[in-house]
Design a protein around this nucleic acid. Structure first.
Lengths: 219, 219
DNA sequence: ATCAGAGTACTCGATGCCGAGTAGCGCTTC
DNA sequence: GAAGCGCTACTCGGCATCGAGTACTCTGAT
């Protein structure tokens, strides 16, 4: 049995589709597109065929039938094996039950914030805040429309989740902006100093002493 | 000029390190480790050498010197070029100012929630909630310790951000759990029905009609 | 009859990434 | 003095991924 590989969510999407009924790859793609899964799941249809192929190699799906429409190329219809159904269930269970640390780009950028002048940071964060507001408003409007058309909330939880995270992020950015602009962020003086560049004696950027003193021998 | 490639955050971390002073690759790795950057940035030290090599090919860093300690292999010390400094600044600016959609695994799993029996979902989400609580408490304790040791808040913003997102996620999960357990989640009856499996006439799982009615011709 | 254009159903080569592996160094310990 | 051990400083093969490209079909208009 090939080792399990649970990092490409397209594979999970394929398994979930096939759990409903056998399909050929292109049908999987259109189904996912029609359901707007690409808004909540990272899907790259270019890798669809390699993913399907890998699932087959690992014994999670098997060719079920082949069909042909007109003179278009023959299509292979796949269905999940017992192992495939099990894998889909366990994978889903794992994602739901154990929170995974996922390194958003913004978190990385925040950790490099001292490398950029405070005034630049303020301007950029301001932009982010207003873009977040726009996106939030759009998403809310979109969800309301779908709800009016009778889509049950059960099928919208993922977008609800996304929006709540976005709202929390916006609140964070706004507060951070306040703290920087008012100069009340602890460490602001040092930050200013290392970016003044007027030749005054300032600690080296990212002064190691800070970390060493702070982290000490804390393993 | 090679096309820009801004998807591996390790490259950004390398550029930020070299912006402080020239280093050799291994020194970059230890610096990043010492500063616990691997907690906020997705770093895989196995790809360090290929990333450095790619930065050099793209003209963003250049070999600055080579040195040798004892009989250990020779090490190449790199420094950023002007283009490299610019790229680091622009990259950072882009991440800070434009929010990027990032597909957390949990969001994907939520969108497949109807594929799993409601009772299973409840048990799994319960687990996630308590794990989130533990992680939150630990992270808070860790941050307090660092603050007591004099680390300024400026250097902790990224962990603050992470915690606030986690807290928002916990709130969401708790609320979702309430809504499912009490049966007040819109769509719950259908969800129950398709997973009863007692042969009663139920709509097909993921009934297409739902989506079609809902999405209509909304492009 | 044929032509444009939209959509269908893939294909492919270059690049990137991962993480296990490893050889040498120098400190300690007996 | 040599064996063990943890650290240093990389290396490498294989797999996944990406996204642009392609060739083909069908529909409708001229």
């Amino acid at each position: 049995m090939a080792r399990r590989n649970r990092n490409n969510p397209l594979a999970l999407a394929v398994l979930m589709c096939l759990a409903e009924r056998p399909m050929h790859p292109y049908e999987i793609a259109t189904t996912l597109r029609r359901r707007h899964k690409d808004e909540s799941v990272k899907l790259n249809y270019g890798s669809l065929y390699s993913v399907v192929c890998s699932l087959e190699r690992r014994g999670l799906i098997v060719a079920h039938d082949t069909e042909r429409h007109g003179r278009l190329p023959e299509r292979t219809v796949y269905r999940p094996t017992a192992a495939g159904r099990l894998e889909a269930h366990e994978w889903l269970a794992e994602i739901l039950s154990v929170p995974l640390k996922e390194y958003p780009a913004f978190e990385a950028a925040l950790s490099f914030l001292p490398g950029m002048a405070p005034d630049d940071a303020i301007a950029l964060l301001e932009q982010r805040a207003s873009r977040l507001e726009v996106a939030l408003a759009q998403a809310r409007a979109g969800r309301e429309m779908l709800e009016e058309r009778g889509l049950p909330r059960l099928l919208l939880v993922e977008s609800e989740f996304e929006n709540e995270l976005r709202a929390a992020e916006l609140a964070f950015v706004r507060r951070l902006l306040d703290d920087i602009s008012s100069g009340s962020l602890d460490g602001y003086d040092w930050w200013q100093a290392i970016h003044r560049g007027d030749g005054s004696p300032v600690p080296a950027p990212f002064d190691e002493a800070h970390w060493l003193a702070a982290n000490g021998n804390a393993a």
